[in-house]
């Protein structure tokens, strides 16, 4: 019965979080604060993994495809499509599940155990709406942007390393990338991005909001947030791919 109870509580939290705000000004302020925290705060790690993944994918693809009768532009096609379809949304999603998910869960968990959420409730503030809604909305705005940045960086770093190591010249790589670009692939990539953003933020907020048991409880909530986000990202990644392709 426990998973059903948890799912019910999760749905109730989401329902409460979309209630009318007490003060639009305060909610807007909170939204921008969260966008800055999630977006700017995660940019460094996203840049780092994207650049390295782009370079490694190019080198490994080239290693498998260096055959005279295969045009060099195919490497550009494969790297770009892999980045758009899988690497940027899923790997960035998994990294953000760790970076953003644990941060959201521990922030809310600490607020819960330090009675700050109770303080909001006693004041008459809808704590779910004030704390959870801006975080989910900020994630839905910022995480897809990070995934777009990641896709671009993977492609660019792939082109850079391909050209500098003499595997594939710039113009061939770019020609391949342009050739493979399809709206359907872009839509699929963005569908994954929005789904993962919602999962990371809502699951982490749920785990943090219902934390209990002091510092140990906050630690457990934070771990659960990351684990559940990662599991559901991988599961939904498969479902979305199956539905679209």
């Amino acid at each position: 019965m426990l998973p059903f109870t948890d799912f019910g509580k999760y749905l109730l939290l989401l329902r409460n979080s979309i209630r009318r705000p007490e003060s639009t000004r305060m909610y807007a302020k909170e939204l921008f604060k969260e966008m800055n925290k999630i977006g700017i705060g995660s940019l460094g790690i996203v840049i780092l993994i994207s650049v390295f993944l782009g370079m490694v994918t190019t080198l490994q693809t080239a290693y498998q495809l260096i055959v005279a009768w295969i045009p060099a532009s195919v490497i550009g096609e494969i790297v770009t499509e892999t980045a758009m379809l899988e690497l940027a949304p899923t790997i960035t999603g998994l990294v953000l599940a760790g970076r953003v998910g644990s941060s959201l869960a521990s922030e809310l968990g600490t607020m819960r155990v330090k009675e700050q959420i109770d303080a909001l409730d006693v004041m008459g503030v809808n704590s779910a709406a004030f704390l959870v809604f801006p975080k989910i909305l900020a994630s839905l705005v910022v995480i897809p942007m990070l995934i777009l940045i990641s896709t671009a960086l993977m492609t660019l770093s792939g082109a850079f390393i391909g050209n500098n190591s003499g595997i594939v010249p710039y113009h061939d790589f770019v020609a391949g990338a342009i050739d493979i670009f399809k709206v359907k692939v872009f839509i699929l990539s963005m569908t994954k991005a929005y789904t993962f953003a919602f999962m990371i933020s809502s699951i982490s907020c749920y785990q943090g909001y219902y934390s209990s048991g002091g510092a140990t409880g906050v630690g457990k909530s934070s771990t659960r947030a990351v684990v559940w986000s990662c599991v559901l990202i991988l599961f939904s990644d498969y479902i979305i791919a199956q539905l679209f392709l």
């Binding site: 009675e115 109770d118 303080a119 004041m123």
Partner: peptide, 20 residues
Amino acid sequence: ERKKIRQEIGMLFQSAALFD
């Protein structure tokens, strides 16, 4: 209605519960 009553209530928590 419940919110209106709550706005007439102040509470000092054991931990003060200030927003960090």
